[in-house]
Write a protein that binds this DNA or RNA. Structure first.
Length: 581
RNA sequence: GCGCCCAUAGUUCAACGGAUAGAACACCAGCCUUCUAAGCUGGUUAUGGGGGUUCGAUUCCCUCUGGGCGCACCA
């Protein structure tokens, strides 16, 4: 248990002894809005109600009956609030020792139940562009996966790639029409040679998709041709199928390059095309079991009586919709990994669909918790993203711009650095910026992504946090802590700004816990920003290396702890630190 | 038509029933012969309208207004 939780437990024990009742709980202790009020506070409304007195009286009563000793430095009543100031040196010693001994594990709950949680994210479509909307899914999923692990669960990150569907047929139609002179020759391999010098063929497919879907909208014949292509791909027949196989690889290569860039790893990647055939068999079984039924020539799940409307499973032309692959995928996940819970990270607009899917799975006797974690869209200042109107920012575009900007800045600052050193640093700053921009807003809010602001690297950004870390490392490089840690005198950390920093460090584990409970990485992002602000304020006011030997050692221990927590928190966002920048 | 979500400063976001509604960006004025100025300090500006529940409401309920989204054959 973290030092602050132990302290809270002790204080509530004393409160309950004083009032001779078991009402106060550690979670009732809150942090006061202003520092001068105290470090912890008990709002006395609940106690007052239970004891039949007014809250201010209770607060006064507690002041008289709780002694200031040990961890408690002083107590006071402010209206209905019972405020507590903690012993600064004792808290400092406790928190810093805890961080120094746990290091990268500080903030992690190692006493967790070790339940297995499968988390599916980044279910991108092949043959389409990868834009910042997909990036939100990827960064959010990756961070949630890390936060789940930090909260003591065993996480199983998986991805599900949609490599089937009419969007693919459209892209392939476009490829044949615009790039292969409207015909497929016998030798597809040499035909596709012309694309060999394209560095990113996945992105090329995205461009073709946009062009094709625009053209098909106006052209009925083209639409029919695309449908025919889809049928051939589904039946795994003909040159169109071969073309699908080749181009599918292009997209998959692009995805794995992006995952590699961003340091995202999956235990397993599933593909829609592996599940369609199995899914069709299951649809037949479910028809027999009356879980599905035929209606107007289609196969549907009628969930009206549960308030979930109707879900079309097979269209009247026999083509499959999402659940045909999603059902066998879910079955396979439970069979292969037997997770205790299964999380799906998918755009929140699919909330109804997931309720329907989970309902069907429950009636097939899959009883383990299945959770759809929805997140909102990424918009641009100019409005909703739209491929057709060109109002879109692709991953490649974003990366390129950030890279140029960060490289210019870094090169100007460090004229003596080698090209390699600059590149390595810039890469971390760029990845950090991409992820932080996707995570700093709560997942239930839309992100209005302003690329100009993202390029500025000022304010509430990952660069600010990475800069804070690098600054601390710079000081630590200049002078290591002079004494054995056990000899450090923490009473030298009694300065208000130091105390504020220590209290903030003590709160880190609860930020991790809250982020886990709400599946909300922005809790970590905001926590880190506040911590870094407190540090930078302190940094500008207090000299560290110039202070006397005893004070210096304590201060070095403090800032070392700050940098450890910044590093730990950024790791939960999937962001790496830099030693210099 | 049915259902879901959102509305806070010029802009982008916080506030998880609690104390004087916080930040960032932008704008203005300062701070590098001292540990990295991608930084720090100071200044201006906000809860869409109306009811209710509560000791206490940005937060919960109802309603109006204004946005967004989802709802049998787009994925």
């Amino acid at each position: 248990m973290s030092i602050i939780n132990k302290t809270k437990q002790n204080i509530t024990k004393k409160i309950n002894q004083a009032i001779k009742a078991d009402i106060a709980a550690p979670e009732n202790l809150v942090y006061p809005p202003r520092e001068d009020m105290g470090d912890l506070s008990l709002p006395c409304f609940v106690l007052a109600k239970n004891l039949g007195k007014n809250p201010a009286e209770i607060a006064e009563f507690l002041v008289k009956n709780i002694k200031s000793k040990g961890a408690i430095a002083s107590v006071s009543a402010l209206g209905p609030y019972f405020n507590i100031k903690l012993n600064k040196a004792e808290l400092a010693k406790g928190v810093i020792n805890e961080i120094e001994s746990l290091r990268e594990n500080y903030g992690c709950n190692k006493s967790g139940k070790k339940q297995k949680i499968m988390i599916e994210y980044s279910n991108a479509n092949t043959h389409k562009e990868f834009h910042v909307g997909h990036l939100r899914n990827l960064c959010y999923g990756d961070s949630v996966s890390r936060i789940i692990a930090a909260n003591g669960y065993k996480n199983i990150p998986v991805s599900y790639i949609n490599d089937f569907g009419s969007h693919i047929a459209k892209t392939i139609w476009g490829l044949i029409k615009f790039y292969l002179d409207d015909k497929i020759s016998d030798d597809i391999n040499s035909e596709l040679e012309k694309f060999s010098d394209h560095e990113n063929k996945g992105a090329l497919l995205g461009e073709i998709y946009v062009r094709a879907s625009t053209a098909i909208k106006e052209d009925k014949t083209a639409k029919q041709l695309a449908e025919l292509i889809m049928k051939k791909i589904e039946t795994r027949d003909g040159k169109e199928y071969e073309l699908w196989q080749k181009t599918r690889e292009w997209s998959i290569e692009q995805f794995s390059k992006i995952y590699n860039d961003l340091g995202v790893n999956f235990d397993k990647i599933y593909y829609e095309s592996e599940f369609i055939d199995k899914g069709r068999d299951i649809v037949k079984e479910l028809l027999q079991k009356k879980i599905l039924k035929e209606s107007q020539g289609a196969v549907i799940a009628d969930l009206e009586e549960y308030g979930l409307g109707v879900l079309v499973v097979l269209r009247s032309d026999g083509t499959a919709t999402y659940p045909v692959a999603d059902i066998p995928l879910a079955m396979k996940k439970f069979k292969e990994y037997s997770p205790d819970a299964s999380i799906y990270i998918v755009d929140k607009r699919q909330a109804l669909y997931f309720k329907q899917l989970f309902h069907i799975l429950k009636s097939m006797n899959y009883k383990k918790p299945m959770i759809h974690l929805g997140y909102d869209v990424v918009k641009l200042p100019s409005g909703m993203m739209s491929s057709r109107s060109g109002n879109v920012i692709t991953y490649e575009e974003l990366k390129e711009k950030l890279y140029t900007s960060a490289k210019t800045e870094t090169s100007e600052r460090h004229t003596d650095w080698s090209k390699e050193k600059i590149d390595l640093t810039v890469e971390k700053l760029v990845n950090g910026t991409i992820k932080f921009e996707m995570l700093k807003v709560g997942q239930e809010q839309p992100i209005t992504f302003d690329i100009e602001k993202a390029l500025s690297f000022n304010g509430f950004t990952s660069v600010y946090l990475q800069y804070t870390y690098a600054r601390i490392q710079s000081i630590l490089r200049k002078q290591k802590i002079g004494k054995e840690k056990k000899d450090i005198d923490y009473s030298n950390l009694a300065f208000e700004k130091e105390h504020k920093l220590i209290l903030k460090l003590a709160k880190y584990p609860s930020a991790v816990e809250l982020a886990g409970k709400d599946f909300n990485p922005s809790e970590i992002a905001r926590y880190l920003f506040e911590l870094a602000q407190d540090f930078n304020d302190y940094y500008h006011e207090v000299p560290i290396l110039q202070s006397d030997e005893r004070t210096k050692n304590a201060r070095l221990a403090l800032i070392s702890s700050v940098s450890q927590v910044v590093k730990n928190g950024l790791a939960l966002l999937g962001i790496g630190v830099v030693e210099e920048m």
